[in-house]
């Protein structure tokens, strides 16, 4: 597609690119700060303020060494990856089916179904009743206690619903005439056109599952070896909580220089995989554009 460059277009481009560069810089800074802090001299880190542009003192890997020496981190990685994979599979199936159903205009029960789902976005029973449900199902202290309660989400269903809505009805008309069932229409005809949307909910889900710790902290009290990474990370980040600062030794621990450093390192170790995941999802966004372009 060749674009004519009008003067207005040039000015717009300059402003747009300029804005994007500035905004990009603002967005990189906090992460850069964390990265630089994680390899800084812990003593100097303690007396620093504001954003770090380069590491303080000699670059040190001590923090990472301490983090990776913790056997829980590896266990946590494995568990998290397992949870992310399983929940994503279930989530995709559920959201696609749900979204497809809600986008069927001919379905009489559609409105009721939508309200049924929307209510779950607003109302929740709270911690104790949820715990009792999980206990009643007999899945307390198993992986299912983490996987099942969080693997479907009305929000994703709504997003898929509007994605299906976005498609022109003409696509399915011909298939319908050929006598194709709804499942065939959904999977064969409509779904391939919604790659970008599926990529989005997959990404959202991966990020959410990657960061989620609450269910594990509640439903896995006796199975530390099933904890996801995020829960281990939270332990490191939140340690030295004022609530339990009672004895002298607690206070002395707080003065431990490295504690601060480790917090930054854990942040990096915990988020790096996710940052690397984005370009993969991005591929689908760009691919969509190209597809449109080529066809034109």
């Amino acid at each position: 597609m060749v674009e004519k460059l009008t003067p207005g277009r040039v000015i717009f481009n300059i402003l747009n690119y300029g804005f994007m560069i500035l905004f990009g810089i603002a967005c990189v800074l906090p992460l850069w700060h964390v990265l630089m802090a994680s390899v800084s001299d812990p003593r100097m880190l303690m007396s620093a303020s504001g954003i770090l542009f380069r590491p303080l003192g000699d670059i040190t890997m001590d923090g990472y060494r301490m983090v990776l020496a913790n056997p829980s981190i590896i266990t946590g990685y494995i568990n998290t990856i397992l949870y992310v994979l399983i929940t994503t599979v279930i989530m995709i199936a559920g959201s696609v089916i749900g979204g497809f159903l809600l986008s069927r205009r001919e379905l009489k029960l559609k409105g009721l179904l939508a309200i049924f789902l929307l209510i779950t976005m607003m109302f929740g029973g709270g911690m104790i009743p949820s715990y009792m449900v999980i206990k009643g199902l007999g899945i307390l202290n198993t992986r299912w206690a983490v996987i099942l309660p969080g693997c479907m989400n009305a929000f994703y269903i709504m997003m898929m619903k509007s994605a299906f809505d976005q498609l022109s009805p003409s696509y399915e008309e011909s298939a319908k005439l050929d006598g194709a069932g709804p499942l065939t229409i959904m999977v064969r005809i409509l779904l391939p056109m919604l790659q970008a949307n599926v990529a989005v909910i997959v990404m959202f889900n991966v990020i959410m599952q990657w960061n989620s710790w609450f269910n594990a902290s509640i439903y896995l009290p006796k199975s530390r070896d099933l904890w996801p990474l995020a829960l281990y990370m939270r332990e490191v980040l939140i340690n030295n909580d004022t609530a339990k600062m009672a004895s002298s030794l607690d206070a002395e621990q707080a003065a431990d220089y490295t504690a601060n450093l480790v917090k930054y390192c854990v942040t990096v170790v915990g988020t790096l995989p996710l940052l690397c995941a984005y370009p993969f999802a991005q591929k689908y966004f760009v691919a969509g554009v190209q597809m449109g372009g080529v066809k034109g």
């Binding site: 911690m127 104790i128 715990y131 206990k135 902290s217 509640i218 009290p221 909580d241």
Partner: peptide, 19 residues
């Protein structure tokens, strides 16, 4: 020992009582 995750102590303790 039954030790809750650090940061979830109060939740965990109340759950123990509540159940």
């Amino acid at each position: 020992f039954q030790t809750p995750a650090i940061g979830s102590e109060a939740d965990n303790f109340n759950l123990m009582l509540g159940t």
